[in-house]
Design a protein around this nucleic acid. Sequence first.
DNA 1: TATTAACCCTATTGGATTAGTAGAGAATAT
DNA 2: ATATTCTCTACTAATCCAATAGGGTTAATA
Lengths: 149, 149
Amino acid sequence: MISKKTKYALKALLVLAQNFESQQLTLITDLALKEKLPKKFLELILLDLRNGGILVSKRGKGGGYKLAKNPEFITIGQVIRILEGTLSPLPCLSQKAYRKCEECLNEETCSVRAVMKEVRDATVRILDATSLHDMLHRINTSESLSYVI
Amino acid sequence: MISKKTKYALKALLVLAQNFESQQLTLITDLALKEKLPKKFLELILLDLRNGGILVSKRGKGGGYKLAKNPEFITIGQVIRILEGTLSPLPCLSQKAYRKCEECLNEETCSVRAVMKEVRDATVRILDATSLHDMLHRINTSESLSYVI
DNA sequence: TATTAACCCTATTGGATTAGTAGAGAATAT
DNA sequence: ATATTCTCTACTAATCCAATAGGGTTAATA
């Protein structure tokens, strides 16, 4: 399960991706209202995304947030890594946040690890290949909505 | 991330899968010792697996645990569903434990859900296709250990 | 330069979940 | 009987999650 934090982040980022062309800054308040997200909580999330290099902000009157780069170059994988720390189902599989499993005798021959590595690889393949731009587009293209068919 | 509970369960099940041919019962104590798992905690896990239909037990002297069916017919997906409740990254995608996302306006057009559905489908595809028997076999077959190459 | 708008940062909190531990109870073989 | 072994309920400490609170800092503008 991904956390609400991550889900809220993605919802807010999609709004910012829609606004990207305009070059304008968007207020936290507006993001919170538009997506029905708790404002103070969203503040923390946006701060994480900013520190993660995905957003840029401007303080003071006339301030706000916008994407740090084109929505085509921001992937869901990046976002989840910032907010969840990793995409891996086991700590011993994470690139970013590797930790040894203390009860594991031999990582090379651990078959739990081997299967979970397949899962991680499949997940990474999807999430690092899907950008905010892709997601925006996907809403309106029925062929990708397999659950509708 | 999968919980330690699930990881411990898989480790114990793999030992039981190895012992399956013998038709013999295995003691909780032996499973705990062999895989270095906390015994009392493992007791609870095995109970869950038994209630989930994956193990059968016998009490009293000469008692113990064994698999309820052939290791070929026990998948990692089943095990994770018993211990984690679901394989889905979002509650609104779970078959077994569906819950609506309260802040979500329209499930049909939610692109977060659409991407996560891809992840869930890929995960399910792997985990429901991998049995305990597969895992045991995989330890000794180098072609599946992609990280060795 | 005072005001106001907006993000920034730290701390706190209530509740849930995780990862166990404790101990008595029930079944079974000998 | 009694050893043994699983069963069941309860408890606990630590951590994480999902917020909320409130003051601090920055910047525009009148």
